[in-house]
Design a binder for these strands. Structure first.
Lengths: 312, 312
DNA sequence: AAAATTAGTTGACAAAGTCAACTAATTGAT
DNA sequence: ATCAATTAGTTGACTTTGTCAACTAATTTT
């Protein structure tokens, strides 16, 4: 895992702190809408929890909100007196009470919730759709990085390519293989040729490419092109390092096999390098077998090219 | 400006609110380090301001921190009694006092500042360099979108290309011209050919390309390639829409002209389309003149290709 | 069955924050 | 130049918010 230099790191910490100040001010401004309600900040926090979770006990609330038990107790009593909540003795444990919001409680909480919603909406509303998307993505990145457990989807889709995708394919091949294996610009050139060839003229009934997309972002690609009437060639399989292990690569290869069969090919051939272990596993699992190996220095030292084939 | 649908918008607002809750918890945890100091939260805020800005008046502090004047007054008196600050009567306005931190004040504030720094550092430290960069970028996006005035640098650099850049060039040409002018995959193909040609074999003494980089991100490109011994061809000039108007395009063209002269060319020729107005302006300003126009449908309807030349 | 633990409550209190009245200097209007 | 209005800052009286430790009653552990 690469680390930044001390001075860069320090700069980053300070930038994060600046962001914190900025954001707390933002949020602070937003969440002050409770001020013109009949509730204190602590009370709104309690109400929020109660409105969004059922069958809470005081203990639970205490833990969730990290709040003093005595303080909470008083808040709850006040709520009960105002008819906002009801406490029913737990059947399982006589010490506990399950706290539920009454209809009146919900009604009084609504404007608060609405105010909070509107506040955020006002902030977001002036932004163009694209900008909003960027912000969503940025928040996801931060939550992810700072350890929030985001619900993992692990779901991706394959789709045909659209303008810009070829650039992405070239960019990611050069960047990923450059970084992981040190392959040089000769490899980039090779990929550029393949991509340019494909764009220049490909017969859609015999040649195709797929992009794997996850959460709206490209995360993988594969190409199937014609070598001869009988033989199809599989090329440019790549999966973003971060999304490996989700079966994206295998799914891409399977799609190619399906298409190759449908297009009347008898065999799929592919050329890869011995150092690409995870790709190798996918090929093996899909039924490809190694037919030839030979060393080369086409875009790096000590490489071993491999030809794999699959009889359809 | 495109807008999301109501349901998507609602979802986004809720996501932002979720982020807010997550982040306030994060920050809350971080900024509790004042708890085991001799200062209250309000006091640390005041100290922070005092430590980072000079010659503050109580009024200023009041406004900056959005704090009750009376409350602040008491805090300041306490600080003065503890010898952390000094108040000197303003010469310009006898009602005002300039507040300055004493050496003792700085000394007592240091561990707090250090604690805050360390807290953030601990959060950031486990992340790999790349992840950190992502987080920095994400925070910038959010601050930008949510209206924080980021110090605008407007500074960019030109640099030679490195692996991955060609993909970026292809990607951005296809995406930007696709979006702005509706040019189709035939344009993408054309660009791919140019890029592949360039990568396949270019004589570094006669051909070159430059990438404009701003804040660590690619924002523009230009290529100069050989057409004949006497004539150089300028190609693939592009500037990200968001960074236009900063002189990046002109700077790229100038760099090409400089290189072309140095390489012994007599003339630079370029081919563009009439609809690209801002590019046209750059060419004009650099001394290019229009030598030929002819309509075509190479990658869209009703296009007019233009050839421009510059005698060196 | 006694001891220890747990959920929740309560009183006493301290800290944080607000409000309005006040002083003293400055500014603006005539 | 003078007087009313404004501004910077302070102070006393007060409310709200939050903490702590002692307490009760139910439950679990030994």
């Amino acid at each position: 895992m690469s680390k930044p230099s001390a001075s860069v790191f320090e700069k980053r910490v300070n930038e994060v702190r600046q962001f914190n100040r900025f954001y707390t001010k933002q949020i602070g401004a937003l969440s002050e809408n409770y001020l013109d309600s009949d509730f204190s900040l602590a009370e709104t926090r309690v109400l929020y929890e109660l409105a969004h979770k059922d069958d809470l006990t005081a203990k639970q609330l205490c833990a969730d909100l990290d709040m003093d038990a005595g303080y909470l107790s008083r808040i709850l009593r006040a709520f009960e007196e105002r008819g906002l909540i009801k406490r029913v003795a737990s059947k399982a444990d006589g010490r506990q009470h399950l706290i539920v919001m009454t209809a009146k409680g919900r009604k009084e909480f609504t404007p608060l919730e609405r105010g909070a919603f509107d506040g955020v909406a006002q902030l977001l509303e002036p932004l163009a759709n694209e900008k909003q998307e960027e912000v969503m993505e940025a928040m996801k990145v931060i939550r992810n990085a700072l350890g929030d457990e985001l619900p993992k989807t692990n779901s991706f889709v394959l789709r045909p390519s659209k303008p810009g995708d070829m650039g992405w394919v070239l960019y990611r091949h050069a960047a990923i293989y450059g970084q992981e294996y040190g392959w040089d610009e000769r490899f980039e050139s090779l990929v550029a040729d393949v991509v340019a060839d494909y764009l220049r003229n490909h017969d859609p009934s015999k040649e195709n490419c797929w992009i794997a997309e996850k959460d709206g972002k490209n995360v993988g690609s594969i190409f199937l092109v014609r070598e001869s009437d009988e033989i199809a060639k599989l090329r440019l399989l790549i999966v973003e390092p971060e999304t490996r292990g989700m079966g994206i690569g295998a799914r891409l290869v399977e799609e190619c096999i399906r298409f190759a069969k449908q297009s009347g090919y008898k065999k799929i051939r592919l050329w890869t390098n011995s150092c690409l272990h995870s790709a190798r596993k996918i090929y093996e699992r899909c039924g490809f077998y190694l037919v030839e190996e030979s060393p080369h220095n086409m875009f790096g030292e000590g490489l071993v090219g491999q030809t794999w084939e699959l009889i359809l």
